[in-house]
Design a protein around this nucleic acid. Structure first.
Lengths: 383, 383
DNA sequence: GTCCACTACGCAAGCGCTTGCGTGAACCGA
DNA sequence: TCGGTTCACGCAAGCGCTTGCGTAGTGGAC
């Protein structure tokens, strides 16, 4: 059972291997009777074509690679989920490559680790060097990118600059003038562009509001809770305190909230915070944030790649633009005053006694945090 | 460049393809001069063996599959990260399979989707049926499991029962007698065993403390923040309120904290909460939890699989036991009284004025939450 | 100088599948 | 009834690599 070949099927069906191949491959010119006899025999023997032989004969691997700099971080895991689904539904296998550092990038791109191994590849948030792009082109397979774009490759991305600008504009609209940013380190070795773009959007918003960009309002750290925490601590140690903080991603915003809480600053009364991504925990924190649908981006680019891999002639690359929209929750308020209405103790400020527990009845109709806590929610969608 | 074959190399080096193959493969019996000439030629041409041909000729795929029911959830993403690293370092490729529902399981196991496609597979937290086990054995490749164990397969897992028991025992030790559990749905279709085991540990702890298991202290939900939130809401809607809650995973615990906060119950003054996993955000919440090192489990089982795949004769399967340990933070306290000493506003109770900001100096030595907020931390390690 | 045991390498047969080309049989109209 | 199509399928040549076996060439022992 483990090693039935096409010949076994052919023999059982009383035909030649080539006929079996054609039948299984759905190539015409076969009589209906033969086809069904073959299908039956194949089924009976539990036959499945040997991928290795198929690959060698056709040159097609039926496999695509996804290479990403992180796996465990929310954005990447989420994207991978959407991608896997699309690729699987397209009938392709998904090879996972993690590029931890620049040395590994060398391996993956320059040396042909991917060569002859995949029919397509998707790169996630990788800012490629010229040699890397050249190596990728030499692969001669469709390449898709998310969070970046290169001439000749399909891509999907949000408009980081405009989205960040819009997030910061929200703070401006609330009257804030001392708006800080906690951003990714602009000098990390992988040269991610996301931090750069979001920072640019921050500066754009400031400029268009006639505000000066002041270095003491900027702090860096990795895109993690701890990164946001320590960046905020840096911010708080400086002379001038901001009344609002723009975090380049939600994880950093969580860290910021934590740091603010620890020094006794209230959010949003003392400091407004806006994040970026709409991480699932954001609704939990009531975090105002610029939302994007990451799983959907994975799905879309996955479908695009499947299409390109399957198509006889490679279709023109497309540059997709994923939408973002501001989700206003409870971490932002007009400068200097309390938010208009708060739904319950969302900020942990008021503490009703336990007697305010929901009245009896086993199935209290209290939905998830997002639903019940979204009184003053609002959306603004960007292209 | 994209299609240099072994023959090109052979020609350049002035030898036969078989000699090139032996040389590249490191098989002895070749003169040093020939070897270096071949290496040089190969390098010059940028040659790399065709995986497809290699596979067809040897029957080895150089690839392993990891199949998991979730990708985006923390545990799985984390595990995948450790796994990928180990597998990559072992020189193997990693194929990612997501089994969403039981129908897909059918596909993956019964139909030989994996057959002839991989040299090994690792299953994550999948409770296999007999036919599935049989299908897996029929693959005739090493199989590794995490979070489960099957005779003949290597595995790594924590002791869920004992760890859960120990977590609940912590609550018992604090004097709690009304201890609730929010657990995974025992009747979900995938038959995950983790919720079952952790629930069993909960019951063991109760029993050994002479406490009755009361159904009104149990609520179910998926292993997510929202699952924990809604399960807790159910709990709070019942007649008798618990003084402590054991959440089967940290995400659920986060949801529980949120639900408690929303009804004005203080943690840990009114209700203690203990989670399971030590999710990175747990230190952020000050959550007391039963910690496990998931990435390390991925690494270990990955190395194990590599070993088994590479070995000429398959080594005996091993059952690894990963340790867990209780991390006591700020969400648990003795029943009916305030915690002894709290480090700052960790629970969000006291609100010092902004004047209590860290004194000047740009680099306040305030580490990540874990470090500065761990005054009353303690560890207990389980085998 | 002969014989033998190595050494270092080439030959060729696969691995299991695809596919261009070729061919016998069935089928058509005349 | 017959030549020409069309249909349905078989042949065999690869795809690029590995490997068991065979064999020139080399060196040493006699």
């Amino acid at each position: 059972m483990a090693k039935t070949t096409i010949r076994d099927v052919a023999r059982l069906a009383g035909v030649s291997p080539s006929t079996v191949s054609r039948s299984l491959r759905g190539i015409g010119g076969l009589s209906a009777g033969t086809v069904s006899r073959i299908k039956e025999a194949a089924e009976h023997l539990g036959y499945s074509v040997s991928p290795a032989a198929y690959r060698l004969a056709t040159g097609r691997t039926g496999t695509v690679a996804v290479v990403m700099p992180y796996i465990t971080r929310w954005f990447f895991a989420e994207l991978l989920g959407g991608l896997e689904k699309a690729v699987r539904e397209g009938g392709l296998d998904l090879l996972l490559y993690h590029v931890g550092d620049t040395a590994m990038r060398q391996q993956y791109f320059s040396s042909g680790l991917l060569r002859k191994r995949v029919d397509g590849v998707v790169l996630v948030t990788l800012a490629l060097t010229e040699p890397e792009v050249a190596a990728l082109r030499a692969l001669d397979v469709p390449v898709c990118m998310v969070g970046a774009a290169v001439e000749g490759f399909s891509s999907i991305r949000i408009d980081d600059v405009e989205s960040a600008r819009s997030a910061v504009q929200h703070l401006v609209n609330l009257g804030h003038t001392d708006i800080a940013i906690i951003s990714g380190d602009p000098h990390e070795p992988m040269h991610f562009t996301v931090p750069l773009h979001r920072r640019a959007g921050y500066h754009e918003a400031l400029a268009s509001a006639g505000l000066m960009a002041r270095p003491e309002l900027e702090a860096h750290g990795p895109f993690t809770v701890e990164g946001g925490y320590s960046a905020t601590v840096k911010l708080l140690g400086r002379r001038k305190l901001p009344t609002a903080i723009f975090a380049e991603c939600d994880e950093m915003a969580f860290g910021a909230l934590r740091a603010l809480e620890r020094v006794g600053l209230r959010v949003p009364e003392d400091v407004s915070v806006v994040g970026f991504d709409d991480h699932p925990m954001s609704s939990y924190f009531g975090l105002t944030t610029m939302a994007q649908d990451v799983a959907d981006q994975g799905r879309l680019i996955g479908e695009r790649l499947v299409e390109a891999v399957m198509a006889p002639a490679e279709p023109r690359p497309v540059q997709l633009n994923a939408p973002t929209h501001l989700v206003v929750r409870h971490t932002t308020a007009a400068v200097g005053r309390r938010p208009e209405r708060r739904s319950g103790p969302a900020g942990g400020r008021t503490r009703p006694s336990p007697s305010k527990l929901p009245p009896g009845g086993d199935e209290q109709p209290a939905g998830p945090p997002e639903l019940t806590g979204a009184r003053q929610r609002r959306k603004e969608t960007i292209p």
